[in-house]
Simulated scan of single mutants.
Amino acid sequence: MNRTLLFLLLTAVGLTGCARRAANPSTADAVTRPPPAAARERDATAPPASDDTEQALAALRAAPIYFTLDSSSLPPEAGDELTRVAQALRQRSVAKVTVSGHTCELGTTEYNIALGQRRAASVRAYLMRLGVEPERVSVVSYGEERPADVDAPAKNRRAEFSFRLPEQAHAGEL
């Protein structure tokens, strides 16, 4: 038993000592410095740097699509925003979008989940008609669970967009 305790103690001390190794200053700078722009242009297969990712996603911002009470039909004013979103997605072939459907607090939980799903699906169908590939658009329904404004039910009857690039999916974002 004493040998086992001594072994565990030595192992713990050895592992703690390894964790405190100092980084080599010459290699630490190389890791934190981004590669020059020319190097990024030469290697088009490399994933974009975080600045490039932020710029690509900044162009993919979209306003929510608001629905009328108890409806999943797209309002006429949604056409311009969805056309802009579809064009931006077609220009960025690796970007994907999740459309989330939301409802106000009226109705049962089951009904609201189904209505949110129909709202998100109608947005997805419209984007597909505009030329966005189906595998790039996913849908989810939150029903009444994520209100935009508890004091304004009309703002809760919406579909929202979450854009992502492949490297974000691997990093656990979205």
Rank of each mutant, 00 (worst) to 15 (best):
R3N: 12
L5E: 14
L6K: 09
L8I: 05
L8T: 04
T11G: 11
G14W: 05
G17I: 10
C18M: 07
R21H: 11
A23H: 08
N24Y: 06
P25N: 02
S26N: 11
S26R: 12
D29V: 14
A30M: 03
A30T: 02
T32E: 01
R33M: 01
P34S: 04
P36I: 00
P36R: 01
R40F: 10
R42I: 14
D43C: 13
A44M: 11
P48H: 01
S50C: 06
D51K: 15
D51P: 09
D51S: 15
T53M: 14
E54I: 11
Q55Y: 13
Q55A: 15
A56V: 06
A56W: 04
L57W: 09
A58P: 03
A58G: 11
A59D: 09
S72K: 07
P75H: 06
P76C: 08
T83L: 10
A86P: 04
A86H: 07
A88Y: 07
Q91Y: 10
R92Y: 04
T103W: 06
E105R: 12
G107R: 11
T108F: 13
T109L: 11
Y111W: 12
N112G: 02
G116S: 10
G116W: 10
A121F: 05
A125Q: 13
M128I: 15
M128A: 10
L130I: 02
G131N: 06
G131Q: 05
R136I: 02
V140P: 01
V140M: 08
S141Q: 08
E144T: 06
E144K: 07
R146Q: 12
A148W: 05
R157N: 01
R157W: 00
R158L: 06
A159I: 04
A159L: 06
F161A: 00
S162C: 01
S162M: 00
R164T: 03
R164H: 05
L165H: 04
L165R: 05
P166W: 03
E173F: 12
E173S: 11
